[in-house]
């Protein structure tokens, strides 16, 4: 049986090369060659369409970000998208698989598919080309590209202007001074060629933001596989995949940090800035907790998550 996987990241992206491709090879190995995975060179739809593509069977296997689409479907998935969640992509991804995949019933939010993985990348930073953020007031007036609603609310509350655009667009706008900065990972700085334009990068303990990802297979296709093959694939997916992809993200960050060297001034956010962020973040977390409804304890999930990743948030 050949499974078709649609991949929208560039073919040489570190998590394609170091997580999805090795996983695909291992599927063939653990099923004794009965199941193979063919990763398409060109995606079969736009990145935001990728969850629906697996559900509708356009491709068998897809991956993507939960925050691609703004709708009511992946509300509990936001667990991993807050600030101060963890600095290690392996620990982050394992905690995310464990908690969102467990108590928060991720399977229910991914109806029509079988989950092969849930994961997160390394900590998000706040990069800019204007000034070092020494105090909350330094954020005033900065035009910052943000990946989604949460970070937008966060920086807007501190006086910056959040702007939305696709990731490849960031280089164009940053190098022309159309935007002042961007919330990105270490890896994205080199992947999108931003190291010459960014001067200051503020790290926040546990990351100022994170993104959460799904990795899923069409449910009917999954059911059509033999029980033995499903068990074999499950064994290399889920928690095992969280470790594999987490390591790929960590390594990508390490490579990026080496490449950047001292071209960019990396500094830890001063305590006043962290305090200001925490205040806004706490409120946004509470809004989310209240939106979850009966049966889901968001506050407990967040606390458990931070305990697993070792982030102390007093």
């Amino acid at each position: 049986e050949e499974l078709i996987m649609s991949s929208w990241l560039p073919p040489k992206h570190p998590i394609v090369v170091n997580a999805f491709e090795p996983w695909a090879e291992e599927v063939e190995k653990v099923t004794g060659g009965r199941v193979t995975v063919r990763i398409m060179g060109k995606p079969l739809g736009s990145p935001p369409a990728h969850f629906d593509m697996a559900r509708d069977g356009i491709a068998d296997i897809t991956y993507g970000l939960h925050s691609f689409t703004e709708d009511d479907r992946f509300n509990r998935a936001r667990l991993g998208q807050f600030s101060f969640m963890g600095d290690d992509a392996i620990a982050n991804s394992q905690a995310y698989w464990e908690i969102y995949g467990g108590k928060l019933d991720a399977a229910d939010e991914h109806e029509g598919t079988h989950l092969l993985g849930l994961f997160m990348h390394g900590p998000g930073l706040l990069h800019n080309s204007i000034r070092k953020i020494e105090a909350p007031a330094d954020l005033q007036g900065l035009k910052l590209r943000v990946p989604g609603g949460y970070v937008a609310d966060l920086v807007e509350a501190l006086g910056a202007s959040p702007l939305f655009m696709s990731s490849p667009e960031v280089y164009e706008k940053l190098s022309r001074g159309v935007i002042d900065g961007v919330a990105f990972t270490y890896e994205a700085m080199t992947a999108f060629n931003l190291t010459d334009d960014i001067k200051y990068s503020m790290t926040v303990p546990g990351g100022i933001y994170n993104t959460t990802w799904f990795f899923a297979i069409n449910e009917d296709k999954w059911e059509s596989l033999s029980e033995e093959d499903r068990a074999a694939i499950d064994a290399i997916s889920g928690a095992a995949f969280a470790e594999r992809v987490g390591k790929a993200w960590n390594d990508a960050d390490t490579v990026a940090m080496e490449e950047i060297g001292d071209k960019v001034d990396f500094y830890e956010a001063p305590p006043e800035v962290v305090a200001a962020l925490k205040e806004v973040a706490g409120k946004l977390e509470q809004d989310w907790t209240e939106s979850l409804g009966e049966g889901y304890d968001g506050a407990a999930a967040l606390a458990e998550f931070r305990e697993m990743t070792g982030v102390a948030l007093e």
Binding site: D52, M53, G57
Partner: peptide, 10 residues
């Protein structure tokens, strides 16, 4: 079914 979904998305 998948073809219909693919066309609709496009």
């Amino acid at each position: 079914q998948p073809a219909g979904a693919m066309v609709g998305n496009a």
